[in-house]
């Protein structure tokens, strides 16, 4: 299963970005192969429509979940029709590494 995490930088030590549409990077993490992919967000400086454009970008990578600090008003109906789960995690101090550790623990306990 693939999970998208919004990030402020392109390393494991960067923090979780509190915005979805205008975040700096998307981290696509595959919980099965443990593969990581960093995608710079092209919509960062967009004047409008950054959210829906980011949804398209993320959906093109076939993710099942998106973890971010907050989602805009246009996002929910889009993601609902694409059947992508939204997770709002309001902890700006958390690093990408911490979140991946949590996800790893969860998938281990579920597979057991």
């Amino acid at each position: 299963m693939k999970v998208a995490i919004t990030s402020t930088g392109n390393s494991l030590g960067s923090h979780l970005d509190q915005r979805f549409g205008r975040c700096d990077f998307f981290v696509i993490y595959d919980t099965e192969t443990k593969a990581l992919e960093y995608i710079p967000n092209p919509n960062k400086e967009a004047l409008e429509g950054a959210g829906p454009a980011s949804v398209q970008l993320v959906a093109s990578r076939n993710v099942n979940k998106i973890i971010s600090g907050e989602f805009g008003i246009k996002i929910k109906s889009l993601l609902d029709s694409l059947k992508i789960q939204m997770i709002i995690f309001k902890e700006p101090d958390k690093k990408i590494k911490d979140i991946i550790d949590i996800l790893n623990n969860t998938s281990q306990t579920h597979s057991k």
């Binding site: 997770i87 995690f89 309001k90 949590i102 996800l103 623990n105 969860t106 579920h110």
Partner: peptide, 22 residues
Amino acid sequence: SCGCFFNHPEKQDTVANCPLCG
């Protein structure tokens, strides 16, 4: 347990676990 909010797009199945911390 972890304080996150999440939605559940597959409404036929009931939600049992948090998708983040389980």
